[in-house]
Write a protein that binds this DNA or RNA. Structure first.
Lengths: 70, 70
DNA sequence: AAAAATTTATCGTAAAACGATAAATTTTTT
DNA sequence: AAAAAATTTATCGTTTTACGATAAATTTTT
C-alpha cells in the first residue's frame, strides 16, 4: 500500500495544515483529506506544489509498504 | 515539475514495457503514456502496483525538479 | 524486409479531484 | 471549564482525468 506522509513533513517544518493549504493553493478541506490518505489519486500538479511548499521530494511524501513490511 | 522515471527503473530491471503493463494490470497503451509522462495524475493503486512490479519506491518513480534545478 | 515492440490517437465510461460550503470534532488558548 | 482556533468530515456539483478497448503510426529489433 501507499502511505502519505504529509503529516511527517508538516511536523518537520513546524507548519500547519492551514498554511500548507494556502501555499499549495487547494482548500483546507481537501488538504485535510489529502493528508489523511482519504484520496485515491494525486495530480502531479498537486504533488509538485506540495514538494515546493514543503521543500521535499515525492519520496518524502509517498511511501510504499509491501503487505508484510514492518 | 514532477518527472516520471519508470524508464529508468525498467532499464535497471531489464524489463520491457509490455511485461510491466502485464504485471501492473493496465493496458500497454496506458503504460506507455504513464512512462512518458503524458498523464496528469496517478492513482495510488497504480503507483502501488508499479512499486510492487518494479520492486522500488515512489521516490524511485517520481522525481521533483524545481525550476532552476540541474 | 519482416516482425515485434512501443507510441500515439480516438472514443466512451467510470472514477475521482477539487471548489464551495457547512457542520462536527478535536486541539489550543484563556 | 469555557471560548476560540484549527482540523476533520460530509455533501453537492463540476470538471478533469484515468483507464479500457481498439487501431494506426512509428520505432526498434531480428
Amino acid at each position: 500500500m501507499i502511505v502519505i506522509n504529509i503529516d511527517v513533513m508538516l511536523a518537520r517544518r513546524k507548519m500547519s495544515v492551514t498554511e500548507l493549504s494556502e501555499r499549495v493553493g487547494i482548500t483546507l478541506a481537501n488538504m485535510s483529506l489529502l493528508k489523511n490518505g482519504k484520496i485515491k489519486a494525486v495530480r502531479l500538479s498537486t504533488l509538485d506544489a506540495l514538494c515546493a511548499a514543503l521543500d521535499c521530494t515525492p519520496g518524502d511524501l509517498l511511501e510504499y509498504r509491501s503487505d508484510n513490511a514492518d
